[in-house]
């Protein structure tokens, strides 16, 4: 009797059953998170190191670069941001390569709440999303009322997506229910806007924490889980992305909800971006290989992707100044 592996088993099975459990107590939440498997740091790091040796050539590389461009959340989150800067960022988001209209537009622009209206003005009704950080980004150190107001203002100003930060202090001190409640409340405040929950994995430190925080965020209603604010020392890393992808995969299989992953901070080169795509490809597969479920939060990455894209198209290396600055 020879049983071949069935094609279904070569991928992720996602049953459609949209009924997330609701948690009313800390202990119920704790029990839920306790069932999660631990992560062996060495094994997780070895896995991504191995995947990082994948070699993308020719058509694969071309399509991967286009895909990566379409996944970029083009970001500016500086105190010095101006309306002019945000406007030019939005123009670039719509038409990343002024000389080549075949280059896809990015997924979204990501700005502070007070810049949402400006961004919306430029983006209009195009497919590019306007994302806003909120909830006292980046530290998250404010009352829930302030966080909700922050969120509401961004949504009212026209944000399609909200990038919130979790209360790392509460998470690390074991006050999981507080973190959960906040996510549920912010999700509510988002209305129809998509919610990305920033775990700030650099502050969570361990992969076990990343896995638990990912699960917690998804239980709270996150549409995306996101690694980092980009404002702390350690931002997105490949093993952290791996652990988060494993979490969304297992969550989809358990609860039938497909949650996206956004990696942010420190991803500057095409080479880096392609490594992430390989990890997505071999951990969660095709469903996540779209801007609907995977994003890069970045600013300088886009120009390197365009540079490499141009090389793939023309066979020649382009001058960096060929592409507009941020």
């Amino acid at each position: 009797m020879l049983r071949l592996v069935t094609p279904e088993s070569s991928g992720i099975q996602i049953p459609v059953r949209k009924n997330l459990p609701v948690f009313l107590t800390e202990s119920g939440l704790r029990t839920e998170l306790k069932k999660l498997s631990g992560v062996d740091a060495v094994g997780a790091e070895a896995r991504v190191a191995k995947l990082s040796t994948r070699s993308l050539k020719k058509e694969t590389k071309k399509s991967a670069i286009n895909l990566a461009i379409s996944m970029v959340d083009l970001t500016t989150l500086e105190g010095a941001d101006t309306a002019g800067r945000v406007s030019s960022l939005c123009s670039k988001a719509l038409r990343p390569d002024a000389n080549d209209l075949t280059a896809p537009s990015v997924a979204a622009v990501c700005v502070y709440p007070d810049m949402v209206a400006t961004a919306r003005g430029v983006i209009g009704t195009s497919s590019v999303q306007v994302a806003s950080v909120a909830t006292a980004f980046p530290s998250g150190r404010a009352s829930l009322a302030v966080k909700l107001l922050d969120t509401k203002e961004a949504v009212d100003a026209g944000a399609d997506e909200i990038d919130m930060v979790i209360d790392r202090g509460a998470f690390l001190s074991g006050n999981l229910f507080k973190v959960y409640e906040e996510i549920v409340a912010v999700k509510e405040a988002c209305g129809s806007a998509h919610l990305k929950v920033i775990l700030e994995t650099g502050e969570l430190v361990t992969y076990d924490n990343v896995r638990r925080a990912s699960w917690l965020a998804m239980l709270g209603g996150a549409d995306f889980i996101k690694t980092s604010t980009g404002k702390v020392g350690v931002n997105a890393t490949l093993p952290v992305a791996l652990v988060m992808l494993e979490a969304v995969r297992d969550f989809a299989e358990e609860y039938g909800e497909v949650v996206g992953v956004k990696v942010a901070g420190g991803i500057r080169t095409t080479k880096d971006a392609l490594k992430y795509l390989v990890v997505v490809n071999e951990t969660v597969g095709a469903t996540w290989l779209t801007p609907d479920y995977f994003r890069f939060g970045a600013s300088s990455l886009l120009n390197d992707l365009l540079l490499q894209r141009s090389k793939q198209q023309t066979g020649n290396y382009a001058r960096p100044d060929r592409f507009s600055g941020d």
């Binding site: 049953p15 459609v16 050539k57 989809a252 490809n281 597969g285």
Partner: peptide, 17 residues
């Protein structure tokens, strides 16, 4: 039951000899 399926390795790799 209706279900989704995510193909692993959906991004095919060209030969890289």
């Amino acid at each position: 039951m209706e279900s989704l399926h995510s193909q692993l390795g959906g991004l095919q790799y060209d030969a890289a000899p």
